[in-house]
């Protein structure tokens, strides 16, 4: 919330915090870039995978240090999760799952930084808006889920061939009778599209709602336009629950992506 304006209304407060820092690239609402989400994604991506990279550079097969131990723990957790879902070659799928898990987790983690800390810091730098949590931006979550979608298509082509993929579009799940081609196609297209949409929407919805609840709890503890200890206690309580949610959402995004890609390589 703005430090210069202590007595804003709750709806102003919420609206203020739900706006991205945008720059326009061209005409229309679509050609805009949410600078805050993008910059935060890049920062958390560099920090999150940077830790892994640092360890990977001086990794030892001997006795691991604490950081390496932690990194290996995450790595084996991800690898085992992928192994449970997908029995084939994990050379690409496991690093993909790791990237998703780390990136989504780091993005979500930004939600635990009290909202107004970030807002005040960026305001001091002269930025009117700054949303610190990239996963509360639908563009960001859809960007990730549609990248996964492209991988689903790619792996379908790879395991079945383009012809086989198109063949399945028309003949599964109701059989190859020509009368069933249209229903088959309709169902398959809905199924294909629903995967990235649900993936992106789920993450976005959870994180957006989580952030909204932080705002509402902050407002709930407000007396006469000023935050009190009540806001802090309530927000702290929600933050504790939120730790579970940010981990869970990162895990769900990872597992579902792997499941979808694994399904794409199955033959019907």
């Amino acid at each position: 919330m703005s430090s210069s304006n202590e007595s804003i209304t709750p709806s102003e407060y919420i609206e203020h915090h739900l706006q991205n820092l945008r720059i326009s690239l061209g005409d229309g609402g679509f050609w805009q870039i949410d600078v805050d989400s993008l910059v935060m994604s890049i920062i958390v991506g560099v920090v999150g995978l940077g830790v892994f990279w640092l360890v990977a550079r001086r990794v030892t097969a001997g006795v691991p240090g604490r950081l390496q131990g932690f990194v290996e723990l995450v790595l084996e957790f991800v690898d085992n999760t992928v192994k449970d879902v997908f029995p084939g070659d994990r050379k690409f799928l496991s690093p993909l799952a790791l990237t998703i898990f780390v990136l989504v987790f780091m993005m979500n983690l930004m939600d635990l930084i009290p909202l107004d800390f970030v807002a005040k810091a960026t305001e001091a730098m002269g930025l009117p808006h700054w949303k610190a949590v990239p996963s509360t931006n639908l563009s960001v979550t859809f960007a990730m889920s549609f990248t996964v979608f492209i991988l689903i298509i790619f792996f379908s082509f790879k395991s079945k061939g383009v012809g086989g993929f198109v063949h399945e579009l028309f003949t599964a799940p109701f059989g190859s009778s020509p009368a069933m081609w249209i229903p088959n196609l309709a169902i398959n297209i809905i199924e294909l599209i629903s995967k990235p949409v649900s993936l992106g929407m789920r993450l976005f919805g959870n994180m957006y709602a989580g952030e909204l609840i932080f705002m509402l709890l902050g407002l709930l503890g407000m007396l006469g336009g000023v935050f009190t200890a009540g806001s802090i206690i309530l927000s702290w309580g929600w933050a504790v629950f939120h730790i579970l949610i940010i981990l869970l959402q990162a895990f769900i995004f990872m597992v579902l992506s792997v499941v979808y890609i694994a399904m794409a390589q199955e033959h019907h």
Partner: peptide, 21 residues
């Protein structure tokens, strides 16, 4: 509604995947 951030983010995501891989 999603905007052009989508493309930039997709590129960044793909870069991270490639780096991890």
């Amino acid at each position: 509604m999603p905007n052009a951030t989508l493309f930039a983010m997709a590129v960044w995501f793909a870069l991270l995947i490639a780096f991890a891989y």
